[in-house]
Design a binder for these strands. Structure first.
Length: 421
RNA sequence: GUGGGCAUAGCUCAGUUGGUUAGAGCGCUAGACUGUGGCUCUGGAGGUCGCGGGUUCGAAUCCCGUUGCCCACCCCA
């Protein structure tokens, strides 16, 4: 074994494709149901876009990006997330000149250099949904509804929807101060990681998993009380919309998100039983980002949902996607003359749009039948020397083992219904 | 970057206190009326026991190192 897939990458083998196809197709349908248009942006961008967009001091930028110099010595980075690229496209392609708000979605791979574990890969895939150009909390609600409906469409039940407001540049700094001074007296009651967080990223104090820290975080001052009027009003209206809907959600005062760009609404969706990385979806509002990457000041909100984690959850809940298409017919033959006839017949069937498989290995009829069975073919068309001589084809229906002799000229029509005669 | 667990056939795993040609089930393949799948029976192919060293008359088995995978921390989808 000379080569192996790079750490944190994997092959999506044929037997897993049914899940991928199902998830992406359901996602497209839901997005289109809500009037979202597809956009695709490059898999790599100039490094500076992510540095500014995601935030210079985030873990992603500091230690997780796949960054390289291209042959012109320009620094490029494989996208670690989608939002920055979409904002760049919005500014660069003047999408603000289209009817606003602009509703977009995209599906594809993203890359982060991390140690893999359950539900975490270095190349992973997300569906990403963004609305650019509106600050109305009803849009926040709509975006969350899209997420909900995607999970509903793939049949996932046991999810927990978490919502919080993370404030804005006007009120968040004040809250961070409040939080720090509250923790200042209690530093010896928290873990080493948290003491580091106190200095580097105080908001992270709130979501430490250790019991002692967690208990303390419960009592810490909540951001809700520090929100400015604008943020408080926005969050209040969002909650009133959420309450009006028939969807369970939880206000999580301790939810913190990893990117610097979030303002006001943040939300996550959690799944039980898929390992420690249980966030299937994460998102929020980013009213400052588009301005930051050179576009007009534009409020926006979006989320990303991990396809691997969606599929993990489906498997955990025993949800099976519809089968991928199987061959309608399998062409079997015996002898050189018959092989020639079989090649022509297969071509004719495919021209007629009938999914047709064959072995072409000159194996025994038994072996060909076995192959047809494993491929799940609906029926087998047998051509042997007798059939060639009589100008007919033997059509065997696999489900009930019945077979009939059909004139060669009628075969295509006979099997076009998808069923054998 | 840190910690823990695991590496034997394509897959899931046995392998007794170190002992001679390393096994099973499934899968693959061939046959059991010379042209018929799923069930059954019989045969066959397939393994540098992750890799490198060491101990020993002898190592899949014991020791050291190394690589990979998995899980967890950090962080995130």
């Amino acid at each position: 074994m000379n080569y192996r897939a790079p750490r944190g990458t994997y092959d999506i083998l044929p037997e897993d494709q049914a899940y991928w196809r199902f998830v992406t197709e359901q996602t497209r349908q839901v997005c289109e149901l809500y009037g979202y248009e597809q956009i695709d942006v490059p898999v790599f961008e100039q490094t500076a876009l992510f540095e500014r967009g995601v935030g210079e001091t985030t873990d992603i930028v500091e230690k997780e990006m796949y960054t390289f110099l291209d042959r012109s010595d320009e620094s490029m980075t494989l996208r670690p997330e989608f939002t920055a690229g979409i904002c760049r496209a919005y500014a660069e392609r003047k999408l603000h000149g289209r009817p606003q708000p602009l509703r977009l979605y995209t599906i594809g791979p993203a890359f982060r250099y991390e140690r893999p574990q359950a539900g975490r890969y270095r190349q992973f895939h997300q569906v990403d949904v963004e609305v650019l150009g509106s600050q109305d909390p009803a849009i926040d609600l709509e975006v969350m509804q899209v997420a909900w409906q995607i999970y509903e469409a793939v049949g996932i039940k046991g999810l927990s929807f978490q919502v919080n407001s993370t404030g804005c540049p006007a009120c968040r700094p004040g809250y961070i101060q409040t939080l720090k001074s509250w923790y200042e007296q209690r530093l010896d009651g928290i873990c080493g990681d948290c003491r580091r967080r106190y200095g580097q990223n105080p908001l992270r104090l709130l979501d430490c998993k250790k019991e002692a820290c967690s208990a303390m975080a419960d009592e810490a001052p909540r951001i809700a009380k520090s929100l400015c009027n604008d943020c408080d009003d926005h969050f209040g209206r969002l909650r009133s919309y959420l309450d009006a809907l028939d969807r369970p959600y939880e206000v999580n005062h301790r939810m913190v998100r990893g990117f610097d760009y979030y303002t006001k609404t943040v939300f996550e969706v959690w799944a039980e039983g898929i390992g420690a990385q249980n966030a299937v979806c994460g998102g929020g509002r980013y009213d400052g980002l588009i301005g930051m990457v050179g576009g007009p000041e534009t409020p926006a909100i979006g989320f990303a949902s991990g396809i691997e984690r969606i599929i993990l959850t489906m498997k955990q809940e025993g949800i099976e996607p519809p089968d991928t298409p199987k061959p309608s017919v399998f062409v079997a033959y015996l002898g050189a003359e018959a092989k020639k006839a079989a090649v022509l017949l297969a071509q004719e069937l495919r021209t007629a749009g009938i999914r047709t498989a064959a072995l072409w290995e000159d194996r025994s009829l038994k072996a060909q039948m076995k192959q047809a069975d494993r491929l799940g073919a609906g029926c087998v068309l047998i051509i042997g020397e007798d059939e060639v001589k009589d100008g007919v084809v033997t059509v065997r229906r696999m489900a009930d083992s019945t077979q009939a002799t059909v004139p060669r000229a009628d075969v295509v029509e006979a099997v076009s219904g998808g069923d054998a005669p």
